[in-house]
Design a protein around this nucleic acid. Structure first.
Lengths: 204, 204
DNA sequence: CACATTATTTGTTGATCGACAAAGAAATGG
DNA sequence: CCATTTCTTTGTCGATCAACAAATAATGTG
């Protein structure tokens, strides 16, 4: 084992690659992008990481064992279930919205591949999703005004909660979760709204 | 206004394109793929739809005004908030898991772009997400066994509910929803678990 | 019929994709 | 010092990308 030592920091380069994949996904990142971000020629990348796919795989593992491991940690370290889930969700939100970092979960986001030249498409889709969330919000706001909801209910939080759940359903479905399983989530999912509603006659 | 009449059915071709975009996203579908699926040469596609991006845009609109409009319809047609949201979520699940159709929401999925040659990457990411859902499931199952949860609680449904919500948080964050808004969803989100827990001493 | 108009077919464009081969440069061990 | 080893640079490979130009074919209208 002799030979010339490597001139660049492998871990540092890997972290750069991870952030790039995090924001633009696997296919959304080209070798040229990696060369730019990592600051080393493509042949060096191949020498150090074997292939683009292996590099991606390693970047995912870096994420999963680092910031992405919040779920594992919360579930393992909190003895109380409720504490565990509260911490898990809170940590998720804090990670997904960390300033000056890629937003969202890398494992979920790495499936959303966007090159720079399709940014317009990406943004339009985001607007669509935001519009849908807004319509949920509008309906709940109205329900709050008309007294369908309790006075202390938080319609905006409810709306954002249901928007998130709705979008998550899509991810779950795409991952192959069967219909009846997803249907069984309806009952817990509707609880927050139910408990925010006034105890008027129109409840079953 | 004379000229040779078009030989293919524009609406039919558009629907084919929609399904393709639905499953593989914008960049995940190449012009060659479109040529294959729509059965017409690329120059004809450009003549009829102007560009790939315009075609995609039209396909999204077709989706949004058709099956994708379930949310708008539920919110508009159901006078009771709870009925509206129950129908909305149920319709979403039914659509996202329709047999012999692309799974998931087109607007969410169209952001997940995958060419055929990166299928391995896509599947591995899906496995990661499924693993995370499984760990939630495991924790709740254990909580059910140890009596942390009520005997009639449905741990599996709860787990899938939280997995969906967690993944949805990522989509919301990526779409730019601010941190404090997402944090405000924690309180409604934890309600289903809270109400599934036994009224033992270890609660707050 | 002729002519204008539109559709279709065929072929190509320049750019970019991931992936590497070959050769030179630099550091180590003997 | 020399030989070996590893890294690094440069250039290029065939494939594929989105997009269109040019030519041909088929329809309508006057």
């Amino acid at each position: 084992m002799a030979g010339r030592p490597r001139e660049f920091d492998r871990d540092e380069a890997l972290a750069k690659a991870r952030d790039l994949f995090w924001t633009r996904g696997y296919e959304g990142v080209s070798m040229a992008d990696l060369v730019n971000a990592m600051g080393i020629a493509s042949a060096r990348i191949y020498a150090a990481f074997e292939s683009k796919e292996a590099l991606f795989q390693e970047a995912v593992m870096l994420y999963a064992s680092g910031e992405g491991g919040f779920a594992t940690r919360a579930l393992a370290e909190e003895p109380n279930v409720l504490d565990a889930f509260e911490r898990l969700l809170r940590d998720a939100i804090l990670l997904y919205t960390r300033p000056n970092h890629p937003r969202g979960c890398m494992i979920v986001m790495a499936a959303t591949n966007y090159t720079i030249n399709s940014q317009a498409v990406r943004e339009r889709l985001g607007r669509y999703r935001r519009d849908r969330a807004a319509s949920l919000n509008e309906r709940l706001r109205k329900a709050s005004e008309t007294g369908e909801l309790k006075p202390d209910a938080n319609p905006r939080a409810l709306a954002e909660f249901y928007a998130a759940f709705l979008h998550g359903l899509s991810v779950q479905a795409a991952d192959g979760v069967p219909r009846d399983i997803l249907l069984s989530t309806l009952s817990p999912a509707l609880l927050p709204l139910k408990s925010a509603m006034s105890a008027n006659a129109d409840n079953l």
